[in-house]
Design a protein around this nucleic acid. Structure first.
Length: 414
RNA sequence: GCGGAUGUAGCUCAGUUGGUUAGAGCACCUGGUUGUGGUCCAGGGGGUCGCGGGUUCAAAUCCCGUCAUUCGCCCCA
């Protein structure tokens, strides 16, 4: 056990894990592309205000999970805990409100100072899409459909459940907030410590509490649906109708309250039972107020983010390393001839493995270990004949192929 | 941040109520094979028993602390 360990909550992505990781990203990028989403990236760190102002001063992410530090110039900088705020900032920075609507796909590392668990790390990775500039419920439907399609493509859709809720518009939320606080205040002393704090700061979160006593109290709380304005209700109905129209099943969950303050209207999560306490694999919602709150022109948006590690864990795809061809020179003359040969084959698109020493036996052993499809043996006999011996390492069959047309002759092993 | 469990070789794990030089399988290296891998046989390398302290004649084993992992809470992707 080495003392040199990665920072708590961070992990190395060795090739096998990297393939899983990339599989999720590539699959998601491809699927998102079919919906018209283009890949883009924002910096891994931003000015702290980008997150602090937009995620909600009282959110857990802002109050205790941000990796913030001071730059040499004295500015406060934060490693992004999520990417929606960064994308919103990029829209403003680049004047992209002139080019609406925007459809963006992203993938990259995010950072949150939390207690690590399986499927939860301090540096983790997310994929996500953002649809910006569409103030229409079918925008919500489109992003949810894209999320479902990603899960489908990864083969995990049947192990997830789509939970859906509406957070309404500002008017609905303010009205509900008033009613909820009015109700909960009578139970102030019975609420859990956390919830008492939330009562003043962010009462909607109490709906989400897992404390048994809180749940009892909340069970009789006013229902949010009763506070919806006609507009907000019509919006939500349109979203549900759209999902129905394309056959995407969902479960209404009135307790679904997103952790970040910028959400409104649709809030949704694709959840799974398969990952223990870390149930959410893709989650998102509408954030019409975000860009405005950040100082840009009022611009609507919807989107979601998915945890790559969680998706990879769920998908558990069998992705063996690509199999190379092994070049095995025998003798000094062959050694000299093989280097340019290897380059030619690589230029022709082959994955070539070549050891830099050892006798034939060792090199053959290595060819086997790297799971080479075939070994290309070149010795004095072969050089004299102008041909290589090609051994199929699966069947053990050997044949010869002319050196000057090896690239074509090896096609079956590509 | 809080509570529980775990921590012995690269990996998976044994290690009896504390008792000599800490073991196995897999993996790795060498040889049996001079121009042929996988199988087989023989041999070999690799561990401050997570780290620090304490109890004891003696600690992988008991106690305390600490770090890490893991499960749950909180919260989230």
């Amino acid at each position: 056990m080495s003392k040199l360990q990665p920072i708590r909550g961070t992990h190395d992505l060795l090739p096998e894990a990297m393939r899983q990781h990339r599989h999720v990203v590539d699959t998601a990028a491809t699927v998102a592309g079919r919906y018209g989403y283009d890949a883009m990236a924002t910096p891994v760190f931003e000015a702290t205000e980008v997150f602090a102002r937009t995620l909600g001063e009282t959110s857990d992410v802002v109050t205790k999970e941000m990796y913030s530090f001071e730059s040499k110039g004295g500015d406060s900088i934060t490693l992004r805990p999520e990417n929606t705020a960064g994308v919103a900032r990029a829209v403003i920075s680049n004047g992209l409100q002139q080019s609406l609507p925007l459809r963006y796909f992203y993938a990259g590392p995010m950072f949150r100072h939390e207690r690590p668990q399986k499927g939860r790390q301090r540096q983790f990775h997310q994929i996500g899409i953002e649809l910006i500039g569409i103030a229409h419920p079918l925008g919500d439907v489109e992003t949810i459909a894209a999320g479902a399609a990603v899960l489908d493509a990864l083969g995990v859709r049947d192990r997830t459940l789509l939970e859906l809720n509406t957070l309404g518009d500002t008017e609905s939320r303010d009205a509900y907030r008033g009613r909820l606080v009015g109700y909960l205040d009578r139970f102030r002393d019975d609420l859990s410590e956390d919830s008492r704090r939330r009562l003043d700061l962010n009462p909607l979160r109490i709906l989400d509490s897992k404390s048994p006593r809180d749940r009892e109290i909340v069970a009789d709380a006013p229902v949010f649906g009763d506070s919806l304005t006609d507009g907000a209700r019509a919006w939500f109905d349109a979203v549900k109708a759209g999902l129905d129209a394309i056959g995407i099943a969902y479960t209404l969950n009135e307790r679904l309250v997103r952790g970040l303050d910028y959400y409104c209207h649709s809030a949704f999560e694709f959840t799974t039972e398969a990952l223990g306490a870390q149930g959410a694999v893709i989650a998102g919602g509408r954030y019409d107020g975000l860009i405005g709150r950040m100082g840009g022109p009022d611009t609507p948006g919807v989107g979601w983010a998915g945890g790559i590690e969680r998706l990879a864990l769920l998908a558990d795809a069998d992705l063996p390393a690509p199999r190379p061809l092994a070049l095995v020179p025998i003798g000094e003359a062959a050694e000299a001839a093989t280097l340019p040969l290897a380059e030619r084959l690589r230029a022709a698109g082959y994955r070539i493995d070549m050891a830099f020493g050892g006798n034939v036996k060792k090199r053959m052993k290595r060819a086997d270990r790297v799971r080479a499809r075939a070994a290309v043996l070149v010795g004095d006999d072969e050089l004299a004949a102008g041909a290589a011996t090609v051994r199929d390492l699966d069947s053990g069959e050997q044949s010869t192929a002319p050196l000057d047309s090896l690239a074509e002759a090896l096609a079956p092993f590509r």
